[in-house]
Design a protein around this nucleic acid. Structure first.
Length: 689
DNA sequence: GAGGGGATTCTTTTT
DNA sequence: GAATCCCCTC
């Protein structure tokens, strides 16, 4: 969309200015505020304007007192964007909440250790309580105290064997622990419950030992560590997760007035971007600093920017916000600078909190909204709409799907996604939650080990095929220094000429020319592939080791290995075109006219042409969207708080408001008889293309 | 037909 | 890691 040609009336310009003046009044009256604005209102713009205004008003004082403005974002991407739009300034710290909070508290190790010790004790208590009450532990409870300690003793001596076979099926697992089965006959009747109990026992032991070491001031146990790369608590190793970091911070701040003062003196202004996504503990913390600052009469202003209805993450504070940080001035912006009036009107009906948006523009280009309820072949439907909306490379079509699996399928590389999904490491290893990051992340660092290797080869090939690519992108910089251009060009040509219809062929051809006397070529291949892989066979072996033989399961090597080998073979027999589509997807360079996203991943973005494919089920919740559609324009917000209805509503709101001009929703399940609510919002329900 | 146990099947996103 | 389906036993 080209918004610059759209006209805004003088009245609306004045009204928009007034909104900003409301914020500026909060600043001069020293009142914290919350800026609520629906989708497409220009929230980030307002945030940046506010930052600039604060600098204009108080920059000099801030500098004099060595103070700063703090701007907290939810993601690194958002932090980077704000930094860029802001330009160079030393008066503003922009960072994610976790970075920021860790910077503040990391030096308070003495108190952190105390909190950590308490947490460990608390966890041990909790685990003991579940062993005493939960049904899955009832077989364990039957044992006498002596038997219980004996069990722990035996299992502790077999710890490595236990972890190795933990994921085996029940029969194999029992075979490995026949001695336990003899000594405690009933205990292994349910292997899963047994595992749960043993895990608990180990954790208690670990935590107890850690507490003891902390009390002994063991050198390895004098500091609490946080590493943004890991998302799991390793409390016994003094390492905490993202959530625990916030938990500790909140505790530390609440019990330490000195720290509250340090925070408010260091950062008299704190702006929170997308506050609805922020963990409630963060809001609690800011609220308590706010209270304390008032008590000691220091300046401390918080400005929250966000939209409760765009909370689509489970852990975000969402609509609970208002009950946590009270006494805020509310600034509301009703303008929408993104969507057509038609789409705005639908979005207004989906919202149920009373915020009604209006377009800021006097006129808007032709737009369309339609809703279909029918079973469709997606491809046919998309083809029809490609014509209808005149889709081409400059006017792309964006399709929203609920799951990543479907996005992978529609984007043309289901075989690749499914290969990983069905590989042992993910499937038997129950690492389902890693799949998305490992296979589909646009951040290459987040890809899995195997995926990274495949990506390197594909990216190398892609860059060779593109004229715009600089030599430095393809070759290690070291080469460029002592090789003359002619040799380099020859080498480039040689590599460019490597062909292959499938991944197997391509890699085979790469290695056919390897170690044939061309030292420079060899080095180049070493760099791209990996030092330890010298043939297609070795590549295959690498994949097998990482994804299939990782536990070195020695039993039935024949049958097992053959099957796994076949799967890897099949992966590499897939056409190179399919791999290219995967490569384009994770580099965000899709050349097609149709681009697929999950609903969630479109947050913050906007597209001219959007088709939303929707069905009733989302995950385990079979009636996720069907329940919402039955009550769609219902304004009874309070009853919905915390329910699936609320989260479905927010997700639909986010999805719908991504569209600027053309929007089409396709509901693929039966709408049932109660179609009135859907009609009220979307008008006619079409059942034919 | 009730309940126990095993295997299989699921979503999204961020730090 | 919970929900659900399926199979088995009593």
């Amino acid at each position: 969309m080209n918004y610059e040609s759209l006209h805004i009336s003088p009245e609306n310009i004045a009204r928009e200015k007034q909104v900003f003046e409301d914020i500026s009044k909060c600043i001069s009256n020293k009142k914290s505020w919350v800026f609520d604005a629906g989708a497409g209102a220009g929230k980030t713009y307002a945030l940046i304007q506010t930052l600039k205004l604060i600098i204009d008003l108080t920059g000099r004082d801030l500098k004099k007192h060595n103070q700063k403005i703090l701007c907290i974002t939810y993601t690194n991407v958002a932090a980077d964007e704000i930094k860029e739009r802001l330009g160079a300034t030393t008066l503003i710290d922009v960072s994610t909440i976790h970075d920021c909070v860790w910077n503040i508290i990391a030096s308070h190790q003495k108190q952190l250790i105390e909190i950590h010790r308490e947490k460990l004790l608390h966890e041990v208590d909790g685990i003991k309580r579940s062993l005493e009450t939960e049904k899955w532990a009832e077989k364990y409870r039957i044992l006498s105290g002596e038997e219980q300690s004996l069990l722990l003793e035996i299992m502790d001596s077999k710890k490595l064997i236990y972890y190795k076979h933990k994921r085996d099926n029940a029969t194999d697992f029992r075979a490995e622990f026949t001695d336990i089965n003899e000594r405690f006959p009933k205990l292994l009747s349910n292997v899963k419950n047994f595992n749960k109990v043993i895990d608990c026992l180990f954790r208690i032991k670990n935590y107890d030992e850690t507490i003891a070491k902390m009390d002994d001031s063991d050198r390895m146990f004098t500091k609490v560590k946080y590493d943004a790369r890991f998302n799991d608590d390793r409390l016994e190793k003094m390492r905490i997760s993202h959530d625990t970091l916030l938990e500790y911070t909140q505790k530390l701040v609440s019990m330490n007035d000195m720290l509250k003062q340090i925070i408010c003196d260091q950062y008299p202004f704190v702006l929170v971007d997308e506050y609805q996504d922020t963990n409630p503990l963060v809001i609690q913390m800011l609220s308590s600093v706010d209270k304390y600052a008032k008590k000691i009469a220091h300046t401390f202003l918080v400005g929250y920017y966000g939209d409760v209805k765009q909370n689509i993450y489970d852990k975000g504070v969402g609509s609970n916000f208002r009950s946590i940080h009270k006494g805020l001035e509310r600034v509301e912006k009703v303008f929408n600078r993104r969507c057509s009036p038609e789409i705005i009107s639908i979005a207004n009906k989906i919202r149920n909190d009373g915020l009604v948006q209006e377009s800021i523009y006097e006129e808007f280009p032709d737009s369309s909204v339609s809703l279909y309820n029918m079973e469709v072949d997606r491809q046919n439907f998309i083809t029809a709409y490609t014509k209808k909306w005149n889709i081409n490379n400059k006017n792309k079509l964006h399709c929203f799907e609920l799951t990543n699996e479907r996005v992978a399928e529609q984007s043309g590389f289901p075989e690749i996604y499914n290969f990983f999904k069905n590989s042992k490491w993910y499937k038997i290893g129950k690492r389902y939650d890693f799949l998305r990051d490992h296979v589909l992340s646009l951040d290459k660092n987040k890809l899995g080990v195997v995926q990274k290797l495949l990506f390197r080869i594909l990216d190398f090939r892609y860059k060779l095929g593109h004229d715009a690519t600089m030599l430095v992108d393809v070759f290690r910089e070291k080469y460029l220094k002592d090789v003359n251009i002619l040799t380099l060009r020859k080498l480039l040509e040689k590599i460019q000429n490597i062909s292959g219809e499938t991944f197997e062929e391509y890699v085979t051809n790469i290695f056919n020319a390897y170690r044939k006397g061309d030292d420079k070529y060899d080095k180049c291949i070493d760099y791209v592939v990996a030092e330890e892989i010298k043939s297609y066979q070795e590549l295959k072996q690498f994949v097998l080791n990482k994804l299939f033989y990782f536990s070195e399961n020695e039993e039935d090597p024949d049958e097992d290995n053959q099957e796994s080998e076949e799967e890897v073979d099949n992966l590499f027999k897939i056409s190179m075109n399919t791999f290219e589509l995967w490569h384009d997807f994770i580099t965000d360079t899709c050349i097609g006219e149709v681009i697929y996203h999950t609903y969630h991943s479109t947050k913050g973005r906007e597209f001219d042409n959007v088709i939303i494919f929707m069905n009733s089920r989302f995950g385990r919740r079979k009636e996720y969207f069907s329940n919402l559609l039955k009550v769609l324009p219902d304004k009874n917000e309070k009853q919905e708080v915390g329910t699936d209805l609320e989260s479905a509503r927010n997700l639909l709101y986010v999805a719908v408001t991504r569209a600027t001009k053309n929007l089409c929703i396709v509901y693929l399940d039966d709408l049932g008889e109660d179609i009135q609510p859907v009609q009220t919002v979307f008008g006619e329900i079409k059942s034919k293309l």
